[in-house]
Simulated assay, not measured.
Amino acid sequence: MKKGGAIYILTNLHNQVFYTGVTSDVVKRIQEHKEKKYSNSFTATYQLDKLVYYENYLTIEEAIAEEKRIKAGNRASKIKLIISKNAEWKDLWDEISQW
């Protein structure tokens, strides 16, 4: 990944719950979610380990601003964002895990 930051959206197997996050290392962070590194976290509790959306940014500040914008939106706006890049709702982990 480029130096900077990334935002991502995770969901569960049935796409019922969303989690929006920001990180400077999206591969490492998603791997942590998949391995449930933080067993008491929101994502571990609700089995959120399916990466359905991500976007890279040149700076972490840009990524943080976008994360805040996405979190301020409602469920419908998150669904629209996900569908714009991942209409099949597939797990994008395979796409990024080899970076």
Rank of each mutant, 00 (worst) to 15 (best):
K68T: 14
I7W: 03
I9W: 07
G5K: 03
R69Q: 10
V17K: 05
K28E: 12
E32P: 01
S41H: 03
Y57D: 07
K80Q: 09
I30N: 00
G5C: 08
Y53W: 13
Y19I: 02
L48R: 02
I9G: 02
S24D: 14
A87W: 03
K71H: 14
S24I: 13
K28Y: 09
I7Q: 07
Y8P: 00
F18S: 02
Y19L: 02
K80V: 07
T45K: 11
A6V: 05
W93F: 07
K50C: 14
K80E: 12
K85R: 11
D49N: 15
I7E: 03
W89Y: 15
M1I: 06
A44E: 03
L51K: 11
A65C: 02
T23E: 00
G21K: 00
A65M: 07
V22C: 07
A87Q: 08
Y54V: 01
T23W: 00
I79S: 11
Y46R: 11
N12I: 00
A44C: 11
K90C: 06
T23H: 02
T20C: 15
S84R: 10
I96Q: 02
W93N: 12
I96S: 03
I79N: 11
V26S: 03
V27P: 00
E61R: 12
G21V: 01
D94I: 05
L13N: 15
E62V: 04
R29Y: 03
N40G: 10
S41W: 02
T59M: 04
V52C: 10
E66H: 09
Y57M: 08
W99C: 07
K78F: 05
V52N: 04
N40S: 07
I60Q: 07
M1H: 04
G73N: 14
L92Q: 12
N12C: 01
L13W: 14
Y54R: 04
Y54C: 12
N40L: 08
L13S: 15
F42H: 06
Y19M: 04
I83Y: 05
Y57C: 05
N86V: 08
Q31L: 15
I96F: 02
S24W: 01
D25G: 14
N12H: 00
D91F: 04
G4N: 02
T59P: 09
E61Q: 09
S84I: 07
Y8A: 01
E32W: 05
E32F: 08
T43C: 13
G73S: 15
A65Y: 13
T20D: 02
W99Q: 13
Y57R: 14
F42L: 10
L81C: 13
V17M: 11
K28S: 13
A87D: 12
G5R: 01
W93V: 14
T43L: 01
V26L: 04
E62M: 11
I64P: 07
